[in-house]
Design a protein around this nucleic acid. Structure first.
Length: 224
DNA sequence: TTATGGATTAGCT
DNA sequence: GCTAATCCATAAA
């Protein structure tokens, strides 16, 4: 049965009417200066934005994972501070982008005060604005399955043109940044917590957060 | 210096 | 369901 899902999209629902998306309400640095679990839960339903010479891209955050820092064996910070993971140890609200499996970038935001490691991995977005550009960046036609654009950490990074070279270390709270996170007043109806995906260490911890029933959450579409 | 495995995805059986 | 693709950080030697 095709429940249309818990789609969050004002923009697509109101197609045809003029909607002024609230893209300027950036989340402040204090928002990120907390435990990655709290930050993850509170980031669900917020929007990620990219503004560059291709225009504006915006997607609803529907799935995240918390990585707790030096005491979390699955976190990149577990090995201590290195050149690669230095952003995680720096001030909160900065983007940490790493390259994985020889093919993909993953996007994180640093949490906790300066000097204490921690971060959240962005795993899936619901595309809202700039869908044609996301499809172009992904090498797909823009009338195909929207899930293929931003459902999965590697996919959403590619759809937003996120790379380590371009974006690692950016301050996502700054008005000067072309990559930022805003609150457009949407509030998720139900949040679910599960174990994290694709890791072997500390695999049992409930540190994955998602919006229940949202069709853009990554992984196989079985039921719901 | 060499080996290994990873916070993934797409394409094929 | 299985695996190749393909880079890089880290461990082992």
């Amino acid at each position: 049965m095709a429940i249309a899902g818990d789609s969050t999209s004002q923009v697509t629902r109101l197609k045809g009417t003029k909607v002024q998306p609230k893209i300027d309400r950036r989340l402040p640095r204090e928002f990120y200066a907390r435990d990655p679990r709290e930050v993850s839960r509170d980031l669900l339903g917020k929007v990620l934005l990219r503004s560059d010479d291709t225009g504006l891209r915006m997607g609803r955050i529907v799935e995240l994972e918390a990585y707790l820092g030096e005491d979390d064996p699955a976190a990149h910070a577990a090995a201590g501070k290195t050149l690669r993971n230095a952003v995680l140890f720096g001030p909160p609200g900065h983007s940490y982008v790493y390259f994985i499996y020889g093919n993909h970038y993953c996007f994180n935001v640093s949490c906790l005060p300066d000097g204490i490691a921690g971060g959240v991995l962005f795993r899936a977005l619901e595309p809202l604005i700039g869908i044609a550009e996301m499809a172009r960046a992904r090498g797909l036609s823009d009338n195909g399955n929207l899930r293929l654009l931003t459902s999965g950490p590697g996919r959403m990074a590619e759809a937003f043109g996120i790379t380590r070279e371009r974006d690692n270390g950016k301050d996502v709270t700054s008005t000067k940044s072309d990559l930022w996170i805003a609150d457009d007043s949407y509030r998720p109806t139900q949040i679910v917590t599960t174990t994290r995906i694709g890791i072997t260490k500390a695999a049992k911890l409930p540190l994955r957060f998602l919006i229940a029933g949202n069709p853009f959450v990554s992984g196989p579409r079985t039921t719901t």
